[in-house]
């Protein structure tokens, strides 16, 4: 059983709530701007992720998704 973690970096506004609430300190804010002009969050240490969903819980823009590995990853419309 595997999970796929994804951040839609164009949806992310870089508020940092996911970075603050990650219990394993996996996430960080990127140095590169997205199209909206925000610095999005990204998984700096993906190997440490325990897929608890705390980041998803706190993301105000629902930019984070965690899906199980056997489902085809949902592509952006």
């Amino acid at each position: 059983m595997s999970y796929i973690f994804a951040i839609d970096c164009e949806r992310c506004k870089g508020c940092g709530l996911c970075v603050n609430f990650c219990p394993k300190n996996v996430l960080e804010i990127s140095d590169e701007l997205n199209k909206k002009g925000y610095y999005p969050a990204f998984q700096a240490r993906p190997g440490d992720c325990i897929y608890c969903g705390s980041c998803y819980m706190m993301c105000p823009d629902v930019a984070i998704s965690i899906t199980s590995g056997n489902i085809k990853r949902k592509l952006k419309k």
Binding site: M1, Y3, R11, K13, G14, C15, G16, L17, K36, Y38, Y51, G53, Y56, P60, D61, V62, I64, S65, I66, T67, S68, I71, K74, K77
Partner: peptide, 22 residues
């Protein structure tokens, strides 16, 4: 099958106008 976290269907695909962190 474990719990997964995805965007609910009742929420549209549009980006919100709210400030970051709202």
């Amino acid at each position: 099958m474990g719990k997964t976290f995805t965007r609910p269907v009742a929420l549209s695909e549009k980006d919100t106008h709210y400030c970051p962190g709202c």
